[in-house]
Amino acid sequence: MRVFARFLPRRAPSVLPGFGPALGFALAYLSIIVLMPLAALVLRPAELGFSGFVAVVTQPRVLAALRLSFGASLIAAAINAVFGMIVAWVLVRYSFPGKRLVDALVDLPFALPTAVAGVALTALYAPNGWIGRLLQPLGIEVAFTPLGVVVALVFIGLPFVVRTVQPVLQDLDREVEEAAASLGASRWQTIVRVILPAILPALLTGFALALARGVGEYGSVIFIAGNMPLVSEIAPLLIVIKLEQYDYAGAAAVGVAMLSISFVMLLILNLLQRWHRGH
């Protein structure tokens, strides 16, 4: 009966004290720090009017920046989905020396300030850098091109995939695989038909998180991107540039456009996941 009660809203709740003040404080702090500022973001473009808003976000430079931010994020998230799954698999299923170190290291992009990642990646991939030097004879330029944006976003997004897939892989019942094997499935069939479907929702979640993070990413990208308008200029940078010109409404319009596209993409992914679960 107590279990039942949990699912119902309770007006006069438990015997623990402090609910009113705690909720009141939390709501006030949340409103001041998060909600009011975000409201300003959403309301500010209103002064442009709808046609003004459309005019801002359809400027060729804005469109190019949005295309780059979302395109590079999609590519980077896809790369991370593949390699992140491999890393998670290796960390969960195999043992090798230094495994714990590698496991801890996966969180480096969470902990390393993005500016540091940015300058380090630029140093590596610049034409005279350790990796850039090797790629240059092959005609591949990474730094100061859209490819550089992808590299930075791969760095930033990796832990999102690994850390969402890893626990699911860990909790996967190995008996199910044994059952598949005992029923005559080859290892490959077991992986494709039994394991992959089980971790697909987590993989999609990790992909979505990496994608969302990549779209908004700024610090690690601006150093390596070169920031050439129409070519390697990302959307967040455009916001900064508009702000420097005191075009607040324009900056907010780009911000709202970014958030809207992200929201729609995440919604689609969410629906995809639900559809997958429904099957």
Binding site: M1, R2, F4, A5, A12, S14, V15
Partner: peptide
């Protein structure tokens, strides 16, 4: 049996629930 209200009654007597 579970769901019969016995625990709720006990918690009410004890003052854990109103």
């Amino acid at each position: 049996p579970s769901g019969s209200g016995k625990t709720t009654l006990l918690r009410i007597i004890a003052g854990l629930e109103q």
